[in-house]
Simulated scan of single mutants.
Amino acid sequence: MESTELVEVVLPGTVEPEELQFRRGDIPAAGAGQIVVRMEATGVSFAEQQMRRGRYYDQPPFPFVPGYDLVGTVLTAGPGVAPGLVGKRVAALVKVGGWASHVVLDAADAVEVPEGVGAAEAETLVVNGITAWQMLHRRARVRSGGTILVHGANGGVGTVLVQLARAAGLKVIGTASARHHDALRRLGVTPVDYRTEDVPARVRELAPGGVDAVFDHVGGRSVIDSWRLLAPGGTLVSYGSAATRDDTGSKQWPVLKILGRVWLWNALPNGRHAYFFNVWAGRALNKDRFRARLSADLTEVFRALQRGEVTARIAARLPLTQVAEAMRLAESGTVAGKVVLIPGHEGPDAPSRS
């Protein structure tokens, strides 16, 4: 039955998951150039875990509705939008606002989901897929036969990244806790246990000449080690500071330190390159170019899914009304894949742990 009211999750401050609030109201109307999307799947990403702690470097002031991305069906369209878009399943990257039954978007920010791709499956590949694709193909650009190191290879971005890399003919070394090693081996990844092994020493054993690229979401000391593991001409792509998730103090400082190191390393005359990847980079300068690139790259990720090069790993599906449980599960480190939130009238699936 079609919902007749808006339900959204509100993050009121730095609170425990159980203190997230619900707000109800009328379904919004689409303005000029806008669409209203009936959410079918949204997810719990690392960004929301940081936002809950007030640690995401450019989060809005409290209170706000979290939700970094979503997939849903276009319910209505405003003036200036092609009427054929109504009824189509679309995906969107929104940064905030996705944890709601209905979301208003600029139509230009919506990317059509191919026929035959389910909402929850597509959801696992929106922010994770676009991040992995752009870091691998637009930043690192490692030639077939090269070797890369992926930190957190079992995580949301890491899982997609290693599969895209294997499809591109790359050798992959991936860090993860031991419980995930068998799954990584099945993907063709050489696993390294970051808890029990000396990661830099082990990577040097596996790649004595250095690796062609490192993808580092950990931040802190890990970024320095990652830079030192690069082969001549190699590329470091830093895309987070997970190590500082539970720290106190300035939420900008960990990122600013990485940016400072990136600037310094790129000034060195050694042929190596470093980037701090932000999926939103370039949007403020050229919105049309940003949208075109995002649409093209996310479409490539969906095609990779259809070809079987990438699998959609759903850790659990929980109704929006069980968002506290979903966040606890995502933060537990015990699940493989992405925790997906679905409309509140649907029942939960059991989580798949590994």
Score class of each variant (00 low, 15 high):
residue 303 R to W: 03
residue 282 G to H: 08
residue 297 D to W: 00
residue 312 A to C: 04
residue 305 L to Q: 00
residue 262 V to N: 12
residue 329 L to D: 02
residue 265 W to E: 09
residue 330 A to Q: 11
residue 309 E to L: 01
residue 318 L to D: 00
residue 341 L to M: 05
residue 338 K to T: 07
residue 249 G to R: 12
residue 277 F to I: 00
residue 278 N to P: 04
residue 280 W to P: 00
residue 255 V to E: 14
residue 321 T to W: 00
residue 342 I to A: 07
residue 288 D to A: 15
residue 285 L to D: 12
residue 299 T to Y: 00
residue 285 L to S: 13
residue 279 V to N: 09
residue 303 R to S: 08
residue 279 V to K: 04
residue 271 G to L: 07
residue 328 R to I: 00
residue 262 V to P: 14
residue 327 M to Q: 13
residue 269 P to V: 09
residue 251 K to I: 06
residue 306 Q to A: 00
residue 286 N to D: 15
residue 284 A to Y: 08
residue 248 T to S: 12
residue 284 A to V: 10
residue 260 G to L: 11
residue 278 N to Y: 11
residue 339 V to K: 02
residue 250 S to D: 15
residue 318 L to R: 03
residue 328 R to Q: 05
residue 249 G to N: 12
residue 294 L to M: 09
residue 268 L to G: 02
residue 317 R to I: 02
residue 348 P to E: 06
residue 335 V to F: 06
residue 290 F to C: 11
residue 341 L to I: 06
residue 348 P to M: 08
residue 291 R to C: 05
residue 274 A to M: 04
residue 286 N to K: 07
residue 344 G to S: 14
residue 287 K to E: 15
residue 324 A to R: 03
residue 351 P to D: 02
residue 258 I to S: 11
residue 341 L to P: 08
residue 251 K to N: 14
residue 249 G to A: 11
residue 281 A to L: 07
residue 321 T to G: 06
residue 323 V to H: 00
residue 338 K to R: 11
residue 293 R to K: 10
residue 332 S to R: 05
residue 255 V to L: 15
residue 338 K to A: 09
residue 344 G to I: 01
residue 287 K to H: 09
residue 288 D to H: 12
residue 332 S to D: 03
residue 307 R to T: 00
residue 306 Q to L: 00
residue 317 R to L: 07
residue 272 R to K: 15
residue 265 W to N: 11
residue 302 F to P: 01
residue 339 V to E: 02
residue 246 D to T: 15
residue 323 V to N: 01
residue 336 A to Q: 09
residue 302 F to G: 01
residue 348 P to C: 10
residue 350 A to E: 11
residue 272 R to W: 07
residue 260 G to V: 08
residue 272 R to S: 04
residue 283 R to Y: 15
residue 295 S to C: 09
residue 302 F to T: 00
residue 319 P to E: 03
residue 246 D to V: 13
residue 326 A to C: 06
residue 256 L to A: 15
residue 259 L to E: 13
residue 331 E to H: 07
residue 331 E to R: 06
residue 252 Q to M: 14
residue 342 I to N: 06
residue 322 Q to E: 12
residue 284 A to D: 13
residue 320 L to T: 01
residue 266 N to W: 07
residue 277 F to H: 09
residue 339 V to W: 03
residue 266 N to L: 05
residue 249 G to L: 09
residue 288 D to L: 13
residue 336 A to G: 05
residue 320 L to K: 03
residue 333 G to L: 10
residue 249 G to T: 08
residue 296 A to N: 06
residue 300 E to K: 06
residue 304 A to H: 08
residue 307 R to S: 02
residue 267 A to P: 07
residue 310 V to P: 03
residue 311 T to Q: 10
residue 259 L to I: 07
residue 339 V to I: 09
residue 267 A to K: 12
residue 304 A to L: 04
residue 252 Q to F: 13
residue 301 V to S: 03
residue 315 A to F: 02
residue 340 V to M: 10
residue 340 V to P: 03
residue 313 R to H: 04
residue 321 T to P: 02
residue 304 A to K: 04
residue 334 T to C: 01
residue 328 R to D: 02
residue 292 A to G: 14
residue 262 V to D: 14
residue 264 L to M: 13
residue 344 G to H: 11
residue 326 A to I: 05
residue 246 D to R: 15
residue 296 A to E: 11
residue 259 L to A: 13
residue 314 I to C: 01
